[in-house]
Design a protein around this nucleic acid. Structure first.
Length: 152
DNA sequence: GCCAACGTTGGC
DNA sequence: GCCAACGTTGGC
């Protein structure tokens, strides 16, 4: 059963263009249990990803990607030099997991957060809910299909 | 196990 | 840069 996701990233740190260049990337640095649990327990190879740029102007959905590898330990948690280092994690007992994400396309017509708020069919999307900070959010198949139609 | 203090996210 | 929302930490 294919699932659909929205994954947030700050384009200054990692943008859809960066993903286009690297083709795939481990989704490292997630340090929130709810987001981790989605990756660990619910994401499967082939799931569709809406690639969302946050903390930028305008913020919104700028690309499409797919999950290309199931959850595996996020190596940055073991790396003392990484900003994502977690001293409580050990290789025997990792705390943080990530999936690998693969580039699919860059939207020629991105869908900004402002536009999402204006579209009544998308009014239940989590990303427009006040105070919604979760960096990985489930998206319904209907919302995903609406977005594909609007952006192609 | 409660909850105040603190840190982070992210739109504006 | 502000600040609302909300997750995490740690003292008790």
């Amino acid at each position: 059963m294919k699932k659909y996701w929205l994954m947030k990233t700050e384009p200054d740190v990692f943008s859809i263009d960066d993903l286009k260049k690297s083709k795939t990337t481990p989704w490292e640095g997630v340090r929130n249990y709810q987001a981790r649990n989605y990756m660990m327990n619910e994401m499967n190879v082939g799931d569709e990803v809406l690639f969302y740029h946050s903390s930028t102007d305008p913020s919104g959905i700028f690309g499409l990607a797919t999950v290309s590898k199931k959850a595996f330990p996020d190596l940055t948690q073991f790396n003392k030099k990484s900003e994502y280092y977690d001293p409580k994690a050990t290789k025997q007992k990792p705390i943080w997991y990530c999936v690998e994400v693969k580039y699919k396309s860059t939207l020629t017509k991105p869908l900004t957060l402002h536009e999402i708020k204006e579209i009544s069919a998308l009014k239940n999307m989590l990303v427009i809910k006040k105070g919604q900070r979760l960096s990985i959010q489930p998206v319904t198949e209907a919302d995903y299909n609406t977005i594909i139609k609007l952006t192609s």
